[in-house]
């Protein structure tokens, strides 16, 4: 049975879709069978970031409504044969998703894939709650600024209350992914410090993705950043995040922090 990851944040524009694509591709590059699922019905973007927008025939709403079979809707990635996309519908809205339909689709996906990475829409309404509903693991994407941190806190509260796992009395695994981290601005004190974010959210950190033009360039090329340029700083950070996600104990380094001058390693352990 596959493991379901929801990539969520509450706030929009923090990097959920980018992170879904990058984490999904990074998992697939390790040889795992991966499906990335777009839950942002009406405002779908994951197909663009994955470079599959010209190949969408059926979408998740068609599958839920029985107009198409799941294998018909899944789009195989052109670069990685074990990476698939289940796109959202652009012409519908979130009301087209039903709890029963989503459950059936997720159960089917779990049978065929090792990992199912769900791209949650922003907000705390139907789309977001259905995206997190069947998750085993949550990746909470947060920018180091106050509104994003507070929205993430709200989402963590919902993860502990509204997911199927929480309702069964189990705990959903939650990880923090800090994105758009700008070392220069952090140095100046214009951004929240990593310690402050961790103190407020008190969930383990799986990675700090530096603000980088590589991310934007990859998105515009229609490629997850981990596929576009595997040697770039954000790609490396996503690879490390995936290693931590799969349980590897790997110390976290804060980008831009001076290290190595005297051969000293500033390894930081997450909370």
């Amino acid at each position: 049975m596959g493991k379901v990851i929801v990539v969520t944040s509450g706030k929009g524009g923090v990097g959920k879709t980018t992170s879904t694509a990058a984490l999904g591709a990074a998992l697939a590059q390790r040889g795992e069978k991966v499906a990335v699922v777009d839950f942002d019905v009406g405002l779908r973007n994951l197909d663009l970031v994955m470079g599959a927008e010209r190949r969408v025939v059926y979408d998740i709403v068609n599958v839920i409504q029985g107009d198409a079979k799941l294998p018909q809707a899944l789009i195989r990635d052109k670069r990685l044969e074990n990476l698939f996309l289940l796109p959202a519908s652009q012409t519908r809205d979130k009301d087209a998703l039903t709890p029963e339909g989503v459950e059936i689709v997720m159960n089917d996906l779990k049978r065929y894939f090792d990992w199912i990475v769900c791209d949650s829409p922003a907000g705390i309404e139907r789309g977001a709650t259905l995206a997190m509903r069947h998750a085993d693991v949550a990746v909470v994407v947060t920018n180091p600024e106050v509104s994003s941190v507070r929205d993430s806190d709200r989402i963590i509260g919902l993860l502990d209350a509204k997911t199927a796992k929480a309702e069964r009395g189990e705990r959903i695994e939650k990880h923090l992914l800090l994105t758009r981290y700008d070392a220069v601005r952090a140095e100046r004190g214009d951004m929240l410090k990593v310690e402050d974010v961790l103190d407020i959210l008190s969930i383990p950190l799986i990675g700090i993705i530096p603000e980088s033009t590589d991310v934007l360039r990859a998105s515009n090329l229609g490629s997850p950043v981990t596929l576009a340029d595997a040697r770039s700083a954000p790609a490396m950070a996503y690879f490390d995040a995936v290693r931590r996600l799969t349980g590897e104990p790997l110390p976290i380094t804060i980008p831009g922090e001076k290290r190595g001058i005297f051969g000293k390693i500033f390894g930081r352990k997450a909370a």
């Binding site: 507070r150 806190d153 509260g157 919902l158 008190s202």
Partner: peptide, 27 residues
């Protein structure tokens, strides 16, 4: 035994409340 997250509220008119963890902004 856990932090009170933003948007959550704990209402206990019967007596004392002890929270082992933080109470977030908006909670």
């Amino acid at each position: 035994n856990e932090p009170i997250r933003s948007g959550q509220s704990v209402i206990f008119p019967e007596g004392d409340v002890t929270v082992i963890g933080s109470v977030a902004s908006g909670a």
